[in-house]
Nucleic acid binder design. Structure first.
Lengths: 374, 374
DNA sequence: CTGAAAGCGCTTACAG
DNA sequence: CTGAAAGCGCTTACAG
C-alpha cells in the first residue's frame, strides 16, 4: 500500500503543481521572472496592463512552482475578510432543514469566491455576552464579512452584534421576539402565514369541511402557520379545530399525542394540518397503531418538506419551504448590506408552495355544500 | 417596531462594547493608554510581563472601545491560519451522518479556538484539478491549517492535495480505492468489518441460524460490512444468504427491492442485516406492505444509527457508528500532523457498537441446535 | 517591565 | 506597461 501512495507522489511533469523550486512569495516569483513584485501581483489579479510576454513568463513560473498567494496577506491589505460566518444558534445538530439552508449559503458563496465559516453557539434570551463566551470568529475583527444567523435566536444577541458593529442577517422564522413584532431589516423569512393559507386552500379544494390544526402554539412560528391556516379557511367560512400540545419531549412525540387527542376529541374531522413534517410523522404512526387509514379515513398534511418524508407510507403531502433560497437570500443580503452601508429596505418574503403526495385525498363523505357555498 | 429595535441600540454603559471613541488598531489603544503598541499586544496576548496598572489601563480602554484585534493581521504575522476546512466531497447535502461528523469537528475546534470553514466539492475519480476548479480556500495558501475530507473521495484528489503540500485527513470509510488497499496514514475510520461482526454476534445470540445480508456489494464500504457479518457468523458455523442489489435509485428503494427479493428467494430466513439504516427503512416499508411483521416474522437490523430511525415502528436495532468521534479524531489528527511534521503513525480504528431496539427478537422457531453446536 | 523597529506577504497609488 | 515605496495591523526579537 505504502508503495502506491508514495509512487504517485513523484513529479508528474509539473502539471499538478509539484514544486520545482521553492517559490513561496510574490518576491520569489518576481526575482525568478525578472520583474517586480507589483507586476506579479498584477498578473495574479488579472490586470490587463501587463505585456503578454511578461504575463506568460510569470504565469509559467506560478504554475510550475505551485505558487499560491498568502490569503491572510491579501485579506489584510484588501481590507475585507473574504469570508462569512454561518452561525447555527441553539441547536444540537444540523438537521435537514438547516442543512439545506447551509447548502444554499455555500452554493452562493462558492460562486462569489467567499469562504463560509461554520460555527455553533448556545445562549439564552437573557444572556449577556462577555468576550470569552462568544464564538471565536466574533472575538476578532475582519475575520468575517458578517454573520448569518440560523437556528433559534433572540433579540439580545442581535443587539449584541449591532453594538459590535458586526453586520448580520438572520433567519427570521425562528426568531423569538416575545410580544414584539419581527423586525424586517436584516431579516430573511419565508411567508409562514401564506404557507398555512395554501394548505387550507389545498385541503378545502379537495372538499374537506371539518379540519384541524395540530401543533404547539407556544412557538411563534407554529402560531403563524396556524393563523395562516385559519385565515385561509375563513375564506370558505370554515373554522378549524385546534389541538395545541405544548409539553412533548420532541415533535415526533408531540405528533403522537396530537393524534391521540384527534381520535378522542375530533372524531368527525376529515383532514389535519400538522405544524411540521416531523409532527406529521408522529401522527401517522399513532394513527396507524389505531388502525386509522391515511388518507382513506383522514387526510394528513405536513409542513416544511424535509427530505425524509417522501419515503413515508403514504408519502406526505406538505408545504414546501424554499430552504436553499433562504440561504442564498441571506448571503446576498449580507453582501448588499456591505455595499449600501447600513440597513437597506426590507427583504421580500420568500413564498412557500404545496407538494402534493399521497397523504391527502377527497374526504370519504363528500359534502356538496362546499361548492354551493364556495 | 422600528422603535424597539433602535431604542436598544443606545449606549448601555459600555458593558456591551458600544464604541465611546474610534479605537480601531493597537496603535489607537496604545496612544490612548500612553503606552506602546507592543505593550497593547502583550496585554492582548496575556503576557505576564506587564505591570498590573498598565494592564488594567489597557484592558479598560479595550473594553470601553469594543476594540477587537484584526484577525488577518494576526494570522499573517503569526504564520498560521487559525482555521481548518471541512470539505464535503461529492454529496448534494449534509445528511445526518455527515452532519454529526461536522458537529464533532466544530465542537473540538471551538475548544481550541479554530474556525471551521465549510466547503463542498464535486469531482470524478479521474479528474485533474486545474486551479479554477478547486474550492476557493485551496487556491490560496495559509487560508487553512489543512483539509478534513468528508463525503466520498478518490485517490486522485488526495494526491493533488499532497502535491500542493496541503495537509489533510480524510474520512476513510467512504474512500473509493478501486482494487487498492486503504491507506492508513491521514485516514480516520471506524471499523466497518467489526460492526458487521457485532451484528452477526447479536443476531446469532438471539438464536437466529438463517440470516441474510442485503446491500450493494459494488460499494466497498458495504462490502466490508458484509465481510464482517459473514466472518462473525462463520464463528457459529453459519453461512449467510446475500441479496446484492446494485441498480436502485436510492438506498430506500434499494431496501424495497431487497425486501421483495427476500420474500421471494429467502423465505426461510429469520433475520436480515441491511447495509445501512435507510435501506432498512425501505425494507421495513416493503415488508409491511407484504403483511410481514417485524420482528415477529423476521428480525431486521440497520447500520449507522442515524437519528431518524428511532421513531420508526418498530424502532430499529442498528450498529452504532461513532460519528462525532470521527469528526473529533479527524480534527485532532490534522493538528497532530502539523506538530509532528509529516505523517505520524496510523490512526487507530474507531469502534462501533450495537444499539438494541425493537426490530430484532428471537426467531419464531427457536432452533436448539444453535446451543448444541455453539 | 517597556519601547523602537523590523517584518509577515501582499496590493496600490504614484511616478516614469 | 512597469517599478520603488509605502502601508495594511499586528507580533516579536532586541535593547534597555
Amino acid at each position: 500500500m505504502g508503495a502506491f501512495w508514495s509512487v504517485r507522489r513523484r513529479n508528474d511533469g509539473g502539471r499538478q503543481g509539484v514544486a520545482r523550486r521553492e517559490l513561496k512569495t510574490v518576491y520569489d516569483i518576481a526575482r525568478a521572472a525578472g520583474v517586480s513584485a507589483a507586476t506579479v501581483s498584477r498578473v495574479l489579479n488579472g490586470y490587463v496592463s501587463v505585456t503578454p510576454a511578461t504575463r506568460d513568463r510569470v504565469l509559467k513560473l506560478i504554475e510550475e512552482s505551485g505558487f499560491r498567494p498568502n490569503s491572510n496577506a491579501r485579506r489584510l491589505v484588501r481590507g475585507y475578510p473574504g469570508q462569512i460566518c454561518f452561525l447555527l444558534a441553539n441547536r444540537a445538530m444540523v438537521h435537514s432543514f438547516h442543512s439545506r439552508i447551509l447548502m444554499g449559503v455555500e452554493n452562493y458563496c462558492r460562486q462569489v469566491a467567499q469562504d463560509v465559516v461554520f460555527a455553533t453557539f448556545r445562549y439564552g434570551p437573557d444572556d449577556r455576552f462577555p468576550n470569552d463566551s462568544v464564538p471565536h470568529i466574533i472575538r476578532e475583527r475582519s475575520g468575517t464579512e458578517g454573520i448569518l444567523l440560523a437556528g433559534t435566536n433572540y433579540p439580545n444577541f442581535l443587539h449584541f452584534l449591532t453594538s459590535l458593529g458586526l453586520p448580520y442577517v438572520f433567519y427570521g422564522n425562528n426568531l423569538v421576539t416575545g410580544s414584539l413584532e419581527l423586525p424586517t431589516e436584516r431579516c430573511v423569512c419565508f411567508d409562514e402565514h401564506s404557507g398555512g393559507a395554501l394548505a387550507a386552500a389545498w385541503l378545502a379544494g379537495l372538499g374537506h369541511r371539518r379540519l384541524v390544526f395540530a401543533g404547539d402554539l407556544g412557538k411563534p412560528w407554529y402560531e403563524r402557520r396556524f393563523n395562516g391556516f385559519r385565515a385561509g379557511l375563513a375564506e370558505c367560512a370554515i373554522v378549524p379545530g385546534l389541538i395545541d400540545v405544548r409539553d412533548a419531549a420532541d415533535t415526533f412525540q408531540l405528533g403522537r399525542q396530537a393524534a391521540a387527542t384527534l381520535l378522542r376529541d375530533h372524531s368527525t374531522a376529515t383532514a389535519v394540518l400538522a405544524q411540521d413534517d416531523q409532527t406529521a410523522c408522529g401522527m401517522l404512526e399513532e394513527l396507524r397503531l389505531a388502525g386509522v387509514q391515511v388518507p382513506a379515513d383522514i387526510s394528513l398534511m405536513g409542513y416544511d418538506d424535509i427530505g425524509e418524508i417522501q419515503y413515508l407510507h403514504p408519502s406526505l403531502t406538505t408545504v414546501r419551504v424554499p430552504k436553499e433560497e433562504i440561504g442564498r437570500s441571506m448571503a446576498t443580503e449580507l453582501f448588499r448590506l456591505r455595499e449600501s452601508g447600513s440597513s437597506s429596505q426590507p427583504v421580500p418574503l420568500l413564498a412557500p408552495g404545496i407538494i402534493a403526495r399521497d397523504s391527502c385525498s377527497r374526504p370519504k363523505v363528500f359534502d356538496e355544500t362546499v361548492f354551493k357555498n364556495g
